[in-house]
């Protein structure tokens, strides 16, 4: 007993530096955001005195609601597309020979050598009304000559998927690498078709990787600001852009804080749900 408690003290001592760091630079600023949201703004872009509910009340606004809805569906759709693309890639990465594996992983990592902003601007060039993609699609009759590929929600989804795809491939690949592929043979042996084996045995087998991958896209996409700012236009605006407008254009920090709270809560909600679900499912296995 005594020994155990001493060990616990030692363990918490080890985690103290990171705890200190997180509370000082993450939890405390977050609490500031909550506090500022309850303050009035002053005309000079600063924070007035006294307390008010006005900022939070002003969030109930059809304009915000539309942006929040768009933020949500863009994030969900981006996460879904990423998972659909990354799962087969992760599967094949885990199965190819070591030499090809290195080559493909390299291909996935190479884009990171170019700055994130530059890559988004590259998309702007690609999707430009005078760009090659637009011309090819218009020529083949797949889209009308007036259809714009740029400055809409579709462009935001496309570039979000492009940006976060590597972050979804890697956790799925890591999970697939640990997966025992003989289980797929066993499933086939027991009468499952190829796709059935994949859905009933492989997907549950890489569950953790899939959850991680979803969170890796969904959470940054919710708070995404740069991508909709560059390729989104007014019809591709997300909450992140609204917050930036409140800060830089309106110079209204309390308003921006109120919006941020909505964002923080909407990030925390799925995260906590996933954690609770995972803990519940893992409980019987924790015997080992």
């Amino acid at each position: 007993m005594k020994r155990e408690s001493r060990q616990k003290v030692r363990e918490s001592l080890v985690s103290f530096p990171s705890l200190f760091w997180l509370s000082l630079f993450f939890i405390v600023p977050t609490l500031f955001v909550f506090a500022i949201a309850l303050k009035p703004a002053n005309p000079y872009g600063g924070i007035g005195s006294g307390w008010t509910w006005d900022n939070l009340r002003s969030l109930v606004n059809p304009n915000y609601l539309a942006v929040a809805w768009r933020t949500l569906w863009i994030s969900v759709l981006s996460a879904a597309v990423c998972i659909v693309l990354a799962t087969p890639i992760g599967y094949y990465l885990a199965r190819v020979t070591a030499r090809w594996k290195g080559f493909f992983l390299m291909l996935i990592i190479v884009p990171f050598w170019t700055n994130f902003l530059i890559r988004i601007f590259a998309w702007k060039v690609l999707l430009h009304p005078e760009g090659a993609i637009k011309k090819a699609l218009a020529f083949s009759g797949l889209i009308g000559p007036q259809t714009s590929l740029l400055y809409n929600a579709g462009a935001v989804v496309l570039v979000t998927v492009y940006t976060f795809l590597p972050f979804t491939i890697l956790p799925i690949y890591a999970a697939a690498e640990k997966f025992d592929f003989q289980l797929l043979e066993a499933a086939r042996d027991l009468g499952a078709k190829r796709l059935q084996a994949f859905a009933k045995v492989f997907l549950p087998g890489i569950r953790r990787g899939l959850i991680t991958a979803v969170l890796f896209v969904f959470i940054p996409a919710l708070g995404s600001y740069v991508i909709p700012d560059i390729v989104g236009g007014p019809s591709g605006e997300m909450i992140g852009n609204k917050i930036a407008q409140r800060v830089f254009v309106d110079r209204n920090l309390p308003q921006a804080s109120a919006l941020s709270i909505v964002l923080i809560l909407s990030v925390l909600a799925p995260l906590v749900t996933v954690l609770v679900l995972q803990r519940k499912r893992d409980k019987p296995e924790s015997l080992l």
Binding site: D180, Q182, L183, E185, A186, A187, P204, G205, R207
Partner: peptide, 11 residues
């Protein structure tokens, strides 16, 4: 087939 590693579905 009975596999050497049994290949029971862990989930």
């Amino acid at each position: 087939t009975i596999f050497q590693s049994y290949a029971l579905f862990p989930h």
